[in-house]
């Protein structure tokens, strides 16, 4: 028993002097974005198609004689396995970054409400730092600050670029999840803590049995939205040389002679893949949001 006479922990009271601003909502992916996106893809594809007939004329005569240039569709079908492999790689990076970031973020979020002052402050600064850094900067940060391998007890643990990319994307996930958790905990009415306290629950029991279970529901929709955003952001990994879908799309384009009329269909296809993957997640997010809103 510590001779501490401070009032028992209350999430509000702890944060009273600082009162950090409410976590800002992440940009929301909405159905409207989706529709705009589809329209854009269709437009681009149409334009590309309209340009296509001109292409052979512009192409060198010799090439035009030997073979008719492949249409966009045949190019995509031809390279489909490779492009899909790239896309799966994006998914892999996003899933692992999300898993890593979520675990780290939950710990960081809990540290933010710790009773140890220094731990709380450290967690707060860490969260603020990673939350307010551009994702691309964090990606570069992870790429160039982390060595390509670690030696632990004589074992060499390699850190290839894609692992570093996972860490790079995991960092903003971590900070955002930490903030989501802190916001969710804060949104639980103080009366829950008081009721638990009056029933002789310890602080830890209150947190794990009463507060956190209520947070799951509140965190799920924004967490899914975060996943959507991270998935779409994984294409940034092409800037640091990871062979993800966008990198491969560029390579395919080059392999097909860099014909400008292929640009729009190829990148449009990449966009479509992401859209098909992220859109249902977004719909589910909105559904859950509505459902939870009605229920609680």
């Amino acid at each position: 028993m510590t001779p501490e006479r401070d009032p028992p922990f209350r999430p509000m009271a702890v944060l009273l002097p600082l009162r950090p601003r409410e976590p800002e909502p992440l940009p929301r992916v909405t159905t409207r974005h989706g529709l705009l996106f589809v329209t854009a893809v269709l437009l681009i594809a149409t334009v590309a198609h309209a340009q296509a007939p001109d292409a052979p004329a512009a192409a060198p005569a010799a090439e035009a004689l030997t073979q008719a240039p492949a249409t966009a569709l045949t190019v995509i079908i031809k390279w489909l396995p490779l492009l899909m492999k790239g896309f799966l790689f994006n998914i892999l990076i996003s899933v692992l970054a999300m898993a890593l970031g979520t675990v780290a973020g939950l710990m960081l979020g809990l540290a933010q409400i710790s009773q140890h002052r220094w731990l709380r402050q450290f967690a707060w600064v860490t969260t603020q730092f990673f939350r307010n850094a551009p994702w691309l900067v964090l990606l570069f940060f992870a790429m160039f600050m982390i060595p390509y391998q670690f030696t632990v007890f004589g074992y060499v643990i390699p850190f290839p670029d894609w692992v570093k990319a996972i860490i790079g994307f995991g960092l903003p996930v971590m900070a955002n999840v930490a903030e989501l958790l802190r916001g969710a905990i804060r949104s639980i009415p103080n009366g829950q803590w008081e009721a638990a306290e009056s029933l002789a629950f310890s602080r830890n029991k209150t947190l794990w049995l009463i507060i956190l279970p209520q947070c799951v529901k509140r965190m799920l929709p924004p967490w899914m939205n975060l996943y959507s955003l991270i998935t779409m952001a994984t294409v940034m990994a092409n800037l640091v040389g990871v062979s993800e879908m966008l990198t491969l799309t560029a390579e395919v384009h080059a392999a097909e002679g860099g014909r400008p009329e292929l640009l729009a269909p190829l990148y449009g296809f990449a966009m479509l893949c992401f859209f098909i993957y992220c859109w249902p997640i977004d719909r589910a997010t909105q559904y859950l949001e509505r459902r939870f809103h009605v229920k609680t």
Partner: peptide
């Protein structure tokens, strides 16, 4: 309590 504070 006034607000019941049941665990929802």
């Amino acid at each position: 309590f006034q607000q019941y504070n049941l665990f929802p």
